[in-house]
Design a binder for these strands. Sequence first.
RNA 1: CGGGGUGUAGCGCAGCCCGGUUAGCGUACCUGGUUUGGGACCAGGUGGUCGCAGGUUCGAAUCCUGCCACCCCGACCA
Length: 494
Amino acid sequence: MSNNKGIPARAENYSEWYNELVKKADLAEHSAVKGCMVIKPYGYAIWEKMQAQLDKIFKDTGHSNAYFPLFVPKSFLEKEEGHAEGFAKECAVVTHYRLKADPNEKGKLIADPDSRLDEELIVRPTSEAVIWNTYRNWIQSYRDLPLLINQWANVVRWEMRTRLFLRTTEFLWQEGHTAHATKAEAIEETERMLHVYAEFAEKHLAVPVIRGIKTENEKFAGAETTYCIEALMQNGWALQAGTSHFLGQNFAKAFDVRFTTREGTQDLVWGTSWGVSTRLMGALIMAHSDDEGLVLPPGLAPIQVVIVPIYRSEEELARVTAQALEIKAELQKAGISVRYDDRDTLRPGFKFAEWELKGVPVRLALGPKDLDNGTIEVARRDLKTKEVLPLATVAQHVPTLLAAIHDQIYTKALTYRDSHITPVNSYDEFKQVLETKGGFIAAHWDGDFATADRIKDETKATIRCIPLGNPAELGTCMVTGRPSQQRVLFARAY
RNA sequence: CGGGGUGUAGCGCAGCCCGGUUAGCGUACCUGGUUUGGGACCAGGUGGUCGCAGGUUCGAAUCCUGCCACCCCGACCA
């Protein structure tokens, strides 16, 4: 069953619903380059809002932005063993720096064999290597610490399978890289940024997340500990929405980054790194949107309020426009972004449908009847309800309404999430819940990665995390029957 | 890398099996008019190297060979 906006229903084909929504809502499209997307203006506007809001939080927590090279010499990547192993399989490699006309085929270009690089350059899959190599020069004394740097950048990971926003070959992100004098301080920073991400997800994206720690085999290549936030999508699949890594002294060792302590001794620096990416766009889309289109939290909506004029004649249009512009100005004064949709080739119904598809939180419709009655129609995207309100109250009402919309979509997502954390005590029950209900499943696991692999092979579910503050609970592994100290969260995941 | 699919107007597609006027439909776009409180209608019009290369043929979007690209499913994925 298809709706009138040309998007399949979620229940019918979730994956296709997502793809079509991304395209129809004008967020992004596939590019001519395999695995790479074009982020269109409307989608990019949302990303810019995320960036701006996150960037402010980073700065408020003491971080500064900097920029490091796109290319990483191969030898840098080799230095931290775990890191190298983890990323080797998905790196784009630059081998030449020049093209020339193909002597065998007119009009074609080939890499000039004379321009082969002595050392190959890797297009960064992440920047630890190049940054820690730089930090060696920046850090001499405990007085240089902590060093709190963030970078907004693009990275490339040559994944075999891509999906718009969720996993693309090239993606945009921010990566924080900090250096500290003590282990405790570095862990504190790792946890601080995890909480920054969690609050950002909940307060800005309106997406509830579980804060947790990755198991050893799921952690970042090169990290001691990986913290993560895990969100739940409407199809019952989990999505890792952000990670914060405690790097220990691994990169300091690999790049020989030492500092002189207050006591005059030499010590290796402790590190962290943390990142969120355009994947958050995917989380945002999948967490809230419905079969009619996008549903955006007001704080991230490029257009928060759209005003649609209703009129029959030029004269009516003039009257409606005068009133609409007054409302627009009033709302803008309150910091709300407003679009007055006076496109004259489209009828109101078309505009209603289009703005719903694009997830504009509040729609105001203003026509001659309203002018006569001193009213205005106010429609909210999240609940698809509308009411007619006195014109005089609308400017006061809208900010309250926007806040209510945020709360509503957050609460809805939270209710869904909370009702989809299911404890199970047997493997059969586990499989059954996975098939019928999805979501997070809290189960006992023996701590053996062979067991986790077996579960993954048999059910496609992986351990998402061990939640922070997870209660100790003695039990037995649902698969092997061996003893377990606590439940961990499993789910199928993007 | 395996399996499947697609490539024809900006977008979405038909035509291909079974070769034959000027390559069609929807939508979008342009012009004029009527419309406008939930995706308007009428009339006229613009827009095409049919993915690329070669072959068969009097004649190729259609048949043959080769190649390329992208998408979907899987494997893979801090």
